[in-house]
Amino acid sequence: MVWDWKYALDILPGLLEVAPVTILATLGAFAVALILGLGLAFARRSTNRLLSGVTHAVVEFIRSTPPFVQLFFLFFVMPQFGVTMSALMTGILGLGIHYSTFLSEVYRAGIDSVEKGQWEAATALNFTPRQKWMRIILPQAIRPIIPVMGNYLITLFKETPMLLGITVVEMLSQAQIIGSQSFRYTEPVTLVGIFFLVLSYGASLLVKRLEIRLNVHR
């Protein structure tokens, strides 16, 4: 028998112990991506050609190169410039930056989907630019993209195992450590797989329901 139930149950608490790290990395990176992504979307829309051009180039570059390598870059290179932070913080920042480039495109699509008439109406009512964005445009732009954001959250979650590359002890890394102690990898790695499957599949069902609800209430 390849699978040992007793062993699997024995190691489960050890694995779940680091589940908060995986979750924290996911939510932290998502928060970074949400905020930075909005910033990038605005910069890209800027009437300043230089700003929007540079933003465009940076976004294209970051999204075309592996986040795994970007993590190493931050992890190894930042200290050379005197910036030190924990591996987990580096991971949150790295994944967050990578996904902010995707979210900036999502925001853009959302903003573009707001009818031109809404801008004109907001101008006609003499809102300040800030009010226009905060009260009229963004609320309408964000609503239809919520499911897409949800899907990126799930994707991001599934990317967190790569943080083990920069010594973050998240779930897969923990599984590797447990496995190396007893030379039994089957149970720990499989359990981590199931953990990811259950959470991400469950979340994807939630996103689907959310999508339907958002459509119904339109």
Partner: peptide, 14 residues
């Protein structure tokens, strides 16, 4: 649902 890296490890270790 199960992350690329987990699959990679599974194939490699299991």
């Amino acid at each position: 649902g199960t992350s690329l890296l987990v699959q990679l490890f599974w194939l490699f270790y299991v």
